[in-house]
Design a protein around this nucleic acid. Structure first.
Lengths: 329, 329
DNA sequence: CTGAAAGCGCTAACAA
DNA sequence: TTGTTAGCGCTTTCAG
């Protein structure tokens, strides 16, 4: 059924029906007639026909590298809270860490499907840049800093620095590191740099043999810890780029009689729920993921409203959370 | 820019442009001309204008009670894998466990916004039923069984039964239970019933004083465990409806010198990643969340294709995972 | 294979 | 306040 047919049934004009749905001028009796006809027929107007006219989709595209990650889902939750309050809905694309999918969904979103885009990605290339420059709708990047675009990000450098310094201040002498791909500027590069700065400031040189790169999962953390402890030199403190990696490393320690924190302190970044209940409660750095999502959404909302060309960067600070895993006397 | 304007620039007719994007008959030279003009102008056709004509949105609405839950995000991941492969995108609504939001988004989806709906909800009411009956597009419910509709669900009853039986077979005599709201037919009611059946079969009566109802979080599990252990009678095995609740209960045990599994066995349902790395590795029942998402998506796809009125119910089985927390000799 | 033209269902300008 | 009507940008029939 279309608006004309429905208007006939209700005994009013099409404009009356349109005004009913768009809060225009309308006499009360017509309003009642429409309401009654609505109950009877179950008519609902077509969103896309409206969009053709108004050019407004009330949709925001959200591009994610994966769904089942605590940090990412917290960001998404923040995004959805703010956006749904403003009457927007989320068009979600899960790229499964596939860069091609990122590119192709960005391209899809150019097809007038959405009013704005929020992009969470780990690695940014020149291709990203050129495509982002072609976008005719506002875009906000969350979790990374990418020059020339709106960003909401964390202080990954500071977080890693603070955690490493905490362990070194407790007297560790042989710091080790398990990070992630440094092409990821936030979780990869910046956290590594923060680690290195703390090590250097404490008067040590960074031993690259004590630095491993893991995947974003527990098994990989386990394997890298195993590799690290197979050498002659044993670390006495370990910084991990994520809680998940730290949990894997802990699993290895537990199986091999390495005591935490006595033999090895462990600290990481993320402050996931899991950290509290690990067999040794994990010291971590809390990043404000949900807030990042909310702020990203707010930034997008104002960009969609004002169409401003000036890009903004917002960096969120962190909180150091000390638990048992670094509690060496 | 619209299709007419673009067709002029490319020096072809509008039909040619339309055919270019819809794989229709088209001479090669025109195809080349269009490709060149595309590179030059960055033109992208309007999705909504197409939808007005074709009535196809290539969108599936997904209604979730929350985002930051491991089980839900695994389901969503399964859904998105299958749907994106078929060229569909997800319109996501996070209802934040608010039943009104469930209702209103279902209503929104009636407005020709999507081609189909996947609904994850915990509590189903008559209002749900009447609204679901009004939907003119296919709907699949995942994670619950709701008579008269397409469902993909888990064997929650069997899962709870198996876990409880495991602990009773190991010699437990005083079984306790921390569940969730029984209005939730799957995680609430069925898991409680499964627990009760196992207890009864072992020749015990269910002591309702040893049964608590918690929220879906760790703190609540902690509080309920505390309450349970404040009474005279102490349980020697505890079934929890979710891993998160079990983790909270474990936290309480650890703080209060209750040994697991010697003094208290603990088992739950969900098999989340966290369970493996708890201070006592947690026995749990694996439910195939991602598969449920995939199967739900497949069911929806075939309903959208065939428009069949017959509703189907698919129940997925479980895997019992024994770990240290129930390993009493 | 191709182009002209008639809609798809709606909104909004305009005249009343 | 109201109803009429001209589009919004696209697809698809139909006649070539």
């Amino acid at each position: 059924m279309n608006i004309t047919e429905f208007a006939n049934i209700a005994g009013v004009s099409v404009s009356a029906v349109s005004r009913y749905f768009n809060n225009g001028y309308l006499a009360d009796d017509k309003r009642d007639r429409i309401k009654a006809a609505l109950d009877k027929t179950g008519y609902a107007p077509s969103y896309s026909a409206r969009t053709v006219r108004t050019k407004v989709t009330k949709l925001v595209g959200v591009i994610l590298p994966k769904l089942s990650s605590e940090s990412i889902s917290r960001v998404t939750e923040g995004i959805s809270e703010v956006l749904e309050e403003e009457g927007f809905e989320l068009l979600l694309v899960n790229t499964a860490n596939d860069s091609n999918r990122e590119i192709s969904s960005l391209d899809l979103f150019r097809q007038n499907r959405v009013d704005g885009v929020i992009l969470l990605a780990s690695v940014f290339t020149d291709l990203h840049r050129s495509l982002l420059n072609k976008m005719r709708i506002p875009v906000v990047i969350v979790g990374q800093q990418f020059k020339g675009f709106n960003c909401v990000c964390h202080n990954d450098f500071g977080a890693a620095y603070a955690m490493t310094k905490l362990m070194l201040d407790k007297g560790a002498k042989n710091p080790a590191f398990i990070g992630v791909n440094t092409e990821d500027a936030a979780a990869g590069r910046d956290r590594k740099l923060g680690f290195e700065k703390a090590v250097n400031e404490a008067g040590f040189a960074v031993d690259q043999k004590m630095c491993e790169i893991a995947k974003f999962n527990m098994d990989s953390g386990y394997e890298k810890a195993k590799k690290m402890f197979s050498g002659r030199k044993k670390p006495d403190c370990l910084f991990c780029a994520t809680d998940t990696i730290a949990a894997g490393a802990m699993l290895f320690c537990r199986e091999n009689g390495i005591r935490i924190p006595e033999d090895l302190m462990i600290g990481s970044v993320g402050d996931s729920r899991m950290g509290r209940v690990l067999y040794v409660p994990l010291s971590s750095v809390h990043l404000h993921y949900k807030t990042a999502g909310r702020e990203g959404a707010n930034m997008l909302l104002s960009a969609m409203k004002n169409g401003s060309d000036v890009h903004r960067i917002m960096q969120l600070e962190y909180d150091l959370i000390e638990r048992e895993s670094t509690n060496r006397k």
